[in-house]
Amino acid sequence: MSPAREHAVELLRQMVLVRRFEEKCAELYGLGKIRGFLHLYVGEEAVAAGVLAALGPDDNVLATYREHGQALLRGVPPGAVMAEMFGRANGCSRGRGGSMHLFDVERRFHGGHAIVGGGLPVAVGLALADTHLGRAGVTACFFGDGATAEGEFHESLNLAALWRLPVLFVCENNLYAMGTALERHQAVPDLAAKPPTYGIPTERVDGMDVLAVEDAARRAVERMRATPGPAFLEVRTYRFRAHSMYDAELYRDKAEVKRWAEERDPIRLLDDDLRRRGWLDADARAALERGVEQLVRDAVAEAEAGPLEPVEDLERDVLA
């Protein structure tokens, strides 16, 4: 198998893993195994898959509360992510964070951030530390279109540009800040117009085309490694499911969702592409699916088997 073919199939596998993982989460939520707030990444898989493919192990990743995909594709074991959803002590944050607070120091996965915009200044700090300590890493910071209305967004763009820090700002523009459409929350809905005012090189990319996302991310990362300073990607994507499990989706037409899901599904688009190229036959595709299903099954089993945090731990880790 050629490297390009192998890589494309791997990206497909990654996106399918996230999709099946998220579908399983929804099912488990219905069964009461996962509680509270749960934000699924279905439809947006190409963003994490494409951007993370452009990063190395020394780079940092920060994400939002819709971060299962980033965690999985950064290499956090699916069992540790699922156990975290279940609130089990074998979760990647020992069961204390839940869905929105996935952490993995070893993989430089710096969280799940449930406060919109809250992770951006922290990303600036990670990049400042990299620069200060003479390390080569870049920091990829994911956030949604909603975050661009927050003050911390503007503070962070200014600081990163002013101090020429290697922050890759990845705006996952799914066109809605929860239930408020982009043109209803932005005076200038062209989000790619904002970072250039801070002098930040910016690219807009089709977030349903994983290869295009990866290419754009690679260009940005290469430029950042060569010339110190941030970069910005506006990745146009769409969330196929509700904002969270409590969202009746009264703010968008069912026809709009259907159109995106039918015409712009990133997994279907890559499937079609691979088939056209003759890179993935039906048997191999089925085997890929089976492999992913097994991973998800194992993750659920691992989560089920984990212990709940003991009550004696309630006050642990508040202070050292």
């Binding site: 200044p121 922290v122 600036v124 700090g125 400042l128 990299d130 200060h132 911390e152």
Partner: peptide, 28 residues
């Protein structure tokens, strides 16, 4: 100037950047 850093008027950015540095084991 890399150990005594003048910042913009950006308190959220100052503390947030300090948090990122602290995650690396620096002491801001």
């Amino acid at each position: 100037d890399d150990r005594v850093i003048d910042t913009p008027l950006s308190e959220g950015g100052i503390v947030g950047a300090a948090i990122g540095m602290a995650l690396y084991g620096m002491v801001p």
